[in-house]
Design a protein around this nucleic acid. Structure first.
Lengths: 213, 213, 213, 213
DNA sequence: TATGAATGAGAATTCATTCAT
DNA sequence: AATGAATGAATTCTCATTCAT
C-alpha cells in the first residue's frame, strides 16, 4: 500500500539514515568534542555502515558543520516561539532569562558543541552562510522590551541590548558549562535541583536588579 | 658558594626540563584541548625528547592534570594579590570585576583548559587533592565586601556571595570563551580593543547596578 | 556455477586474509613467544596491512588466543583419526606413544605456544570456552585400552589413565621442548635422526615396561 | 669492628648489589621470560639504580646468562648432595625420582628459565663454557645404580642411563611446567597438594615398573 | 661505586578515509 | 543506497641503553 502511493520509500530510508547519522553525530561531538569524537562510534550509534557517513556528509569536518547547523537551527526555532512583545517589560525580561536558562539546561549538547567550535576559532561556523543568515530574533526583541520599559519609566537608560543579551547568555551558560569544575571547587553538587532553582532565582534578580531603575 | 654558581649552562637540569615540558603542554592543551593535543608537538615545543615527558609525567592524562594544577595555582596566586579589604565597597566590587576580566583576558589558556576539563566532567580535577585544597580567597573577600556595603547602606540585602562570584566570572568568561562564535553571529570583531572596553564597562555597570540599592 | 568459479584472484577475501594472519601469527608466536612476537612481522609475513590484524582480531592477546584455539583444534582433529579401539592393547599403547611423539615432532609450534601460555599461567586459555569444550578423546581411549589389557591379563592393575596420559605426553614433549639445552648439556645433537629414533624406542619401551605385568 | 678487620666494606656492598640484581633478575626472567622481562623492574626490585645493572652485567642478554649460570650452579650443587651410591638400587631410583620432582617443585624459576632459553635455541647457554663444564653427576650415578641393580638381578638389561635420566626429568618437569594449561584442560587444580602427591606416586611407580624386571 | 637525566628505535594501537562491489 | 574489506599516517607509550657527573 505504501509502495503504491508514491515512489518515496527509497528516499525516506535515505532521509532516515541521514537523520540517524546526524543525531548520533550530535551526541558524539557533544560528548567528546570535535577531536575526541569517533566516526566509528557515530556509525555504530546510528546503526549504519561507516562508509555511509562519508557518502552523505563528506568528511568529519563537514559532518561537524552539519551538526552545528542543525544545532543553531534548533535554537533559532525555539527562539521564534518566544513572544516577548506580548508581555509587559518586566515579565518579558523574566521570560527571556528563564527561556535562556532552560534552553541551555535542556540542551547540554548546545554548550559543548559551541565550546568545541570556539576552541577551533569558529572555523566551521565561518564557512556556513546558512548559520550566519539565521538571525536570532532575541536581540531585537530585547531591544524593544528595553525601549518599552524605558518609556514606561521602569528601566534605566542607555542599556545596550547586545551587551545585555550576551550577559544573560553568560550567566546561564557558564554555570552549566563549567558545572563539573565548579562543583569540585566548591565541594557541592551544583546540578542538584535545589541548586539549579537558586541559580535561576539569582540570575533573574541580577538582571532585573540591573535593568530596573 | 662556588658550587652554587658553577653549573649554569647545563642541559641536564631536571627542573628546567620539567618546566619546559609543563609550559609547552599548557600551550598545546590550551590550543587544541585534551583530545586534540599531541605529545609529539609538546616535546618539540619544549625542546626535549618525547620520552622525557613520560619519564617525568607518566602519561598524557597525568600531564594534563599537572597543567591544570599549575593553572589553578597561577590564578590562586594572582588572587592573593588582590586586597579588597583595603578598599571601600564600591571600589572593591569594581576591582573584583576588573581583576576577573583582565585575568581571563590575559590568560586565554585558563579558559580553554577549563572548557576541556569540563567536557570531561572534571575527571582529572576530581583526582587532585592539591587543587581542591587551593581555596580561592575571593568568595570570602566578596562576602566581606558585600557585608560592609550592606552595613553602610549602599548595597542591597541578601546577596549570595557565591552566586554573585559565579555571575561575575560568567560575564567575563563567556564573552571571551565564546568570542569566536559570537563574533561570527554578530558579524563584528568582539575582540577589538574598543569592543573589549565597552564590555568591561557594561559588566561593571551590570554588577554595580545590581548590588547598589 | 559460473558465479562460484569467477572470483579467484581476489584480494578482498576476508577469510583468506584472516587465515593468512592466523598462520603468520602462529609462526611468529611459536618462534618468539607471546612477548617476543611482533605485530609488524605478522602483518608482513601475512602480506596484509597491520591495521587489518586489529580489524579482525582486536589486539595482540586476542590474536594469541585465536592462535591457541586453532592449535588445540588442530591437535584434537588429529587425535580423532587415531582409532585405538580397533587395535589389540599392546599395539594401541605403541600407537598412542608413536602418535604423541610424532605429533609434537611435526608441530614444534604446539610446544612453544603451550610453553608461552604456561608462562602466563594460562590466562588466555582460561578465557576460552571453545578450547575447554574440545575434549581430547585420548584419555578415554587410553582408559579403554588399559581396561582391555587388564582383562586380558596383559596389563597391570590400577593404572590411572590420566596420569599415564600425562606421562606419555611428558616423555615426548620434554625431550623436544628442551632439546636445545639438553643438546648443549650433553654435548651432542639430540635432534639428529638417529637420536630421535633411539628416543622413540626408549619411550615405547618405558611405557610398555610399565604397563605390562 | 668490622671496619677494622679488613678493607672489605666497599667490596661487600658491591657484592651485595650484584647479588640483589641477580636475585631480582632471576625472579623477573622466571616470571616473564626473556622478552617479557623488564630491566626497570629488576632495578626496582633489587633496590638499585638501573645504571648499575649495566655497570655490573653489561646488557640484558649477559644478565640473562648470568642468571642461567647461577641457576645451573644451584641445581648442580643440590645434586652433589645426593649420595645414590650409598643406597640399594631400588631406593636409589626412588630417591632420584623424588629429588628431581621436589627440586623442580621447589624451584619453579628453573623451569621457566629453561623454557625461555629453549625458545631461544639455547643461544646463551652455548656461549657459556662455565655451564658446559658443570657436569651433572646424576647420569653417572644413575648409570652406576642401574648397573648395580642389573648385577643384583633386580633391574632389566640394556637401560640407557641418559634416556632414563631424561625420562625422569620429563615426567617431573612437564607436569609442573604445563600445570596451568593442563589444569584448565582437565578442569581441576593439578597443583593441589593431593594431586601433587598422586603424581609423585605415579611417576615413582612408572619408573620402577620399568626398571624392575 | 653509584646515579639521575636523557634518548633513539621501536612497540601496540588508533583513526579518518578509500577501495571494490 | 549501501557495505565489508582494506589502508597510510599517525599517536600514545615502551624499552634497552647511554650520558654526564
Amino acid at each position: 500500500m505504501a509502495a503504491s502511493t508514491a515512489p518515496l520509500p527509497r528516499t525516506r530510508d535515505a532521509d532516515k539514515s541521514q537523520q540517524a547519522i546526524l543525531q548520533a553525530a550530535m551526541e558524539e561531538f557533544a560528548q567528546h568534542g570535535h577531536a575526541g569524537a569517533r566516526i566509528d562510534r557515530i556509525a555504530e550509534q546510528a546503526g549504519v555502515n561507516k562508509r555511509l557517513i562519508y557518502y552523505y556528509f563528506g568528511n568529519k569536518d563537514d559532518l561537524f558543520l552539519a551538526v552545528l547547523e542543525r544545532t543553531y537551527a534548533d535554537i533559532r526555532a525555539a527562539e521564534q516561539a518566544l513572544h516577548l512583545d506580548a508581555m509587559d517589560p518586566v515579565e518579558a525580561v523574566r521570560q527571556l532569562v528563564s527561556f535562556t536558562w532552560h534552553y541551555y539546561l535542556d540542551h547540554p549538547e548546545f554548550i559543548t558543541l559551541l565550546n568545541s567550535e570556539n576552541l577551533h576559532q569558529a572555523v566551521h561556523l565561518k564557512q556556513s552562510a546558512r548559520i550566519q543568515e539565521m538571525n536570532s530574533p532575541l536581540v531585537q526583541l530585547l531591544a524593544d522590551v528595553l525601549e518599552r520599559g524605558r518609556r514606561e519609566g521602569l528601566f534605566r537608560d542607555g542599556i545596550d541590548p547586545i551587551q545585555l543579551y550576551i550577559s544573560i547568555a553568560s550567566i546561564c551558560y557558564f554555570y552549566l558549562s563549567n558545572n563539573p569544575t565548579l562543583s569540585v571547587i566548591f565541594g557541592r553538587d551544583l546540578r542538584a535541583p535545589k541548586a539549579l532553582a537558586q541559580r535561576l532565582s539569582h540570575i533573574t534578580e541580577l538582571v532585573l536588579g540591573y535593568v530596573l531603575r
